[in-house]
Design a protein around this nucleic acid. Structure first.
Lengths: 207, 207
DNA sequence: GCCGAAGGTGAGCGCTCGCTTAGCATGGCT
DNA sequence: AGCCATGCTAAGCGAGCGCTCACCTTCGGC
């Protein structure tokens, strides 16, 4: 049921933009630690230890522990938004674009689950101004998906009563993948992506 | 689209079972604090303060802070399982039972959001043996929903390719309500329940 | 061969954490 | 009246937290 060509969904490590090397190692270590134990349960000594450095080294590259979370959250949301934008702005019917958006978004949440977990569940640990910046990005994420659904409704492809509520549900379904997905589980990110794209097309009454 | 009579979905405070009164006040205070800031970010001083008591009072009624979380998680999961069981075992077609299960489960996650948040997102803060107990309850939750979907497939009411995957997605959709729902938002728990019941019936290809 | 910038470390400061202990008030039972 | 079980508090212990500081090492430019 409706795949066609798809945009790639976050299979590469996207931390190349973080330099120098030591700063990137610290950030990757922080992603792992935050994903495993949560922001508040993670100590700066744990992050530094995972990166093979002393606790003090962290403060050469980052002002505070919260700045680490902020950087991770910012880069992660940029990536998520990029994935959805790519799918939303390609050529094709609304059904194809929605299926592509969902499957690549889900593949990112499953395949890069540690990052997604931090991005989606540690928002409240940020201070007010950093959180406001991230919330703005989330609104753009919502707008991309809502745009595709509105297109489908306008063209008669979809049958949706509550566009805002359905958009919320679609994103909610995708995001929760970061909560339950495990690499030891029976499904690959690609399989979950395909299943969820199918389920979402049913939700919007495609065809 | 398919409502009919519904089971009540967690609109009452379910902490009557916790006695004595001081222990219940502490537990309610802990639910609020854990839901707002997360288990690890919550201090025992904060919990005791919300309950109008000194920090030491907590340890008269609970051995550790973790025991508080364990009790909350246990009672919450019992309640969630009870809601789904009631819906699953009533009379009626699979579509009605599934709609009832989803709408009451969602109403609980939205209406009693603080409890649901702790129950669904603080599982990892429990120790191994407590977590194992809760995980067993979650498997029963999954089995109830899967049972309804299997019934619908067997009777020809539903059109589902991947029953296990669809069950997971349905529960995932409901659970994530605890993450995004707010009382300040534009929707009531009842409205979200009705919308989600409709979306889930579409997901299983009902009728 | 010398120097300063960049990047690192060991030690530790001030603070807050979960939890304990000694002791005080209350109230039902004898 | 005397007594002790129950429920609570004030004070504080040991540990671990985020973060800092004085100092060390490495290395390209002259």
């Amino acid at each position: 049921m409706s795949t066609g060509q798809e945009t790639t969904g976050g299979e590469v490590e996207p931390w190349d933009e973080v330099t120098p090397d030591a700063a990137r190692r610290l950030l990757v270590a922080a992603v792992e630690a935050f994903a495993e134990r949560g922001y508040h349960a993670t100590t700066t000594r744990d992050i530094a230890g995972r990166a093979g450095m002393s606790p003090a080294a962290l403060y050469i590259h980052y002002k505070t522990k919260e700045e680490l979370l902020h950087r991770i959250s910012r880069i992660g949301h940029d990536r998520a938004l990029d994935i959805l934008r790519t799918a939303a702005r390609r050529e094709g019917a609304a059904a194809e674009r929605l299926a592509d958006a969902v499957s690549s978004f889900v593949r990112w949440h499953a395949g890069r689950r540690t990052t997604a977990r931090v991005v989606q569940y540690e928002l409240d640990a940020l201070g007010p101004e950093a959180r406001a910046e991230i919330v703005a990005l989330r609104r753009q994420v919502d707008a991309e998906v809502r745009g595709i659904i509105e297109d489908g409704v306008a063209s008669g492809e979809f049958d949706v009563i509550d566009v805002k509520g359905t958009t919320l549900a679609v994103l909610s379904l995708c995001i929760d993948v970061a909560r339950w997905f495990t690499v030891d589980g029976p499904r690959t990110p690609e399989e979950v992506g395909a299943l969820y794209a199918d389920l979402v097309l049913r939700m919007v009454g495609a065809k």
